[in-house]
Amino acid sequence: MSHELAPAHDLAEPPRRSFLVRASAALIGAIVGIAPLIPGIPFLLDPVLRKKKRPTEQPVRGKDGFLKVTTVDSLPADGSPQQFAVVDDLQDAWNFIPNQEIGTVWLRKVKDAEGKEAVQCLSTVCPHLGCSVDYKSADKQFFCPCHTSAFDLDGKKLNAIPPRGMDSLEVDTQNGEILVRFKKFRGGTPNKEQVG
């Protein structure tokens, strides 16, 4: 039977077909070819398209986003920094997990412009590329082990590696408790740009 069906390119010339047949074959072919991709692309782009930031009805924790971190008394009097974990309710895709350590901050006692005692809070996330910034007590410097970014005690950059100083976070002290408004910032940019 197969001898009847010579290979296609043996035909001298493919039969001519009306423009309409070709056009509709191409058009419908294109539609069925592309259609399955259409809902998938917004699906993949979900993280940037999503309008509802919180998928649940769970309330935002802390008044105005200020979270209790520690007490003023627990900070060293000499103004050396100490690292503390920030505890919040964690929303991770479908999971809602209360009381999770969601990040850390550097806290230290400082004097404000009027000479009064205040608390300084710096994010531990390096503004360079997001590694975790360490403190070298011998040098009284913040130091990032990944790409050797260095910062002074106030978070000002000491070398050209980081694009900006360490990111400060808003602090509030109430009845001896330290509250921090924990935020994340983009790395690698000269300006502090909040994420989310």
Binding site: A8, P14, P15, V21, R22, S24, A25, I28, V32, P36
Partner: peptide
């Protein structure tokens, strides 16, 4: 019927069938 080729005659029919499935 006279012999034809896959493109465009059968392609059209196949595409319409695929569209129906879709």
């Amino acid at each position: 019927a006279p012999t034809t080729t896959f493109w465009p005659d059968q392609v059209l029919k196949d595409a319409v069938a695929c569209l129906a499935v879709l």
